[in-house]
Design a protein around this nucleic acid. Structure first.
Lengths: 205, 205
DNA sequence: AGGCGATCAATGATCGATCATAGATCAGTC
DNA sequence: GACTGATCTATGATCGATCATTGATCGCCT
């Protein structure tokens, strides 16, 4: 068993999921292409069960489509699919910001950390990760665990990656708004929710 | 095999999931109680695999908690857990309403149907279902499939049921606001999003 | 040729068995 | 008795095999 190089140990399902996500975002599996459970299983030297588990996660992330008794295929992401993420994110993060204003009570250290890291970032992937981390911090600061769970399940990282693959990189430049938002949190501006909403929507194509 | 009475045929995982949901909402499994995969499997006359599949769904619905290698247990829903749902719903449905205003363009027939059905409803369960259906209609009308998917994954029905079990039934009486909201949709009032937001939050404890 | 049912191959869904880990239990030492 | 480590047990995680469904292929009939 174990025909593949690196599967160290954390629960096979998780590792397989990452392999599949990487494969889809990198384009190794083309949109519309079928993902056959047994084929993946053989390829990775595992059995069908953990592969199925991973596939259900991908389905929840809407990276694949599955039909009963007919298996999974990589979704053919339309521009509309990518665009749909932004109103949802904007709504969730607006809610988060409104909740977070009270909880933070002007304590914005955690947010500033991400601004600094973003400023220090060099390559594109790093910029993306720190930029997302700032938004995640807002969601965390809301204190609403359900909100956090829903936001995470959107798989922002993955969709952002796909979005970057699709169109050019127009990601940066928005960093200044992070500072504005942080200042709004510091002074507990009730408009911060709307600011975050507008900021998120400004990423939309 | 098949020691249980009614498992007709739609995919075992789905049926098992429903059995488990019913069991949790009805209180047959108490909060904090462990759910042992094999035990359920034997009880329903199936194998472990579809039970695991069902459990992952319950986890996504946040009805259970699971720890790696240590199994699942019914969540001990705090009042806070129940309360957390409302800001998230409110944010999502506000977003949905704002999107739906344009798409509906004043066509509110689909919404009115649910108002009528709600008015004709007799027992509490029916009231709940039709009330939820009205909200679902708004989400559908947004045309944003991701939004629909996220909203559905909140499992509103289940959480509402749990909420009703917890406190008394203070569900009805809000029906009038549905009419107001529908009118706002008819005249394409840009404030409809905020109306929906406020309406949803008014259910919160 | 076109339609229609039988047969087949591929593969998802399910099964029963095994492996591996977390806790509980017990034995031994001090 | 308290601590340490070996052993045992329950059970989640994974496996290999089988069942069942789907779509394709083939042959027959009209």
């Amino acid at each position: 068993m174990n025909a593949s190089p690196a599967l160290v140990r954390t629960g096979l399902g998780d590792q397989i999921r990452q392999v599949l996500i990487d494969g889809i975002t990198s384009g190794r599996w083309a949109p519309g292409e079928r993902i056959v459970e047994r084929r993946i299983a053989v390829e990775l030297g595992v059995s069908q069960a953990p592969v199925r588990e991973a596939l259900r996660h991908l389905e929840a992330l809407r990276l694949i489509e599955t039909l009963p008794n007919r298996g999974a295929r990589v979704r053919d992401f339309t521009d509309e699919d990518l665009a749909e993420v932004f109103p949802v994110r904007a709504g969730l993060e607006e809610t988060a910001a409104d909740l977070a204003v009270h909880r933070l009570a002007g304590q914005v250290d955690a947010l500033e950390v991400h601004i600094e890291r973003l400023a220090a970032a060099t390559d594109l992937g790093e910029v993306m990760r720190h930029s997302i981390a700032f938004h995640r911090e807002i969601v965390e600061a809301s204190g609403n665990r359900l909100l956090r769970s829903v936001w995470q399940s959107l798989g922002i990282e993955v969709w952002t990656t796909l979005s970057l693959r699709r169109r050019g990189t127009e990601l940066c430049g928005k960093a200044a708004e992070h500072t504005d938002i942080t200042e709004a949190f510091r002074r507990q501006d009730p408009a911060v929710g709307r600011m975050v909403h507008a900021h998120v929507m400004s990423y939309a194509p």
